[in-house]
Lab assay of single mutants.
Amino acid sequence: PEDLERKVRELQKNGVSPEQIEKILRRDGVDEREVQELVKKVS
């Protein structure tokens, strides 16, 4: 979803590592495939 992507970009802009971003997304209940997609987009 659009807002998730925005969140991921925000986190990355704040210097959060892709690994941390993955953890955060998983903790928020984002589905694994979605997590991978989002992280791939920003890394």
Rank of each mutant, 00 (worst) to 15 (best):
E37W: 09
E32W: 10
E2F: 11
V42H: 06
V39C: 09
P1V: 12
K7C: 08
R9E: 05
P1R: 15
E37H: 07
D31L: 06
K23N: 12
R27L: 13
P1K: 14
N14R: 13
D3P: 05
R6Y: 09
I24K: 01
R33N: 11
G29D: 02
E2K: 11
Q20G: 07
K7H: 05
G29I: 02
Q12N: 08
L38F: 05
R9K: 09
G29Q: 02
D28W: 15
G29E: 02
K13I: 06
R33A: 13
E22C: 15
K40G: 10
Q36R: 12
I21T: 01
R9S: 05
E10W: 14
E5C: 13
S17G: 06
E34H: 11
I24M: 09
E19T: 06
Q20R: 05
K41W: 12
V16N: 08
E37R: 15
V42M: 14
S17N: 05
G15M: 03
E22F: 12
E2A: 12
Q36A: 11
E5L: 14
E2G: 13
I21A: 01
G29W: 02
L4K: 03
S17M: 04
G29L: 02
Q20E: 15
R33P: 03
E2T: 13
E37N: 10
L25G: 00
E2M: 12
K7F: 14
L4I: 08
V35T: 03
L25S: 00
R27K: 10
Q20S: 06
K40H: 12
K23C: 14
L4H: 04
Q12A: 14
V39N: 02
L4Q: 03
V30N: 03
V16L: 14
S17I: 03
V8Q: 00
E10G: 04
V39Q: 02
E10M: 10
N14T: 07
P1N: 13
R6N: 10
K13A: 13
P18L: 15
R26N: 03
K23E: 15
K23W: 12
E2W: 12
V39D: 02
V42C: 09
R6K: 12
E37Y: 09
E34F: 13
R33Y: 08
G29M: 02
N14P: 00
E5T: 07
R27E: 14
V35I: 15
G15H: 04
V42D: 04
E5Q: 08
R33W: 12
E22N: 03
E22K: 13
P1D: 10
V35D: 01
E19P: 03
N14I: 10
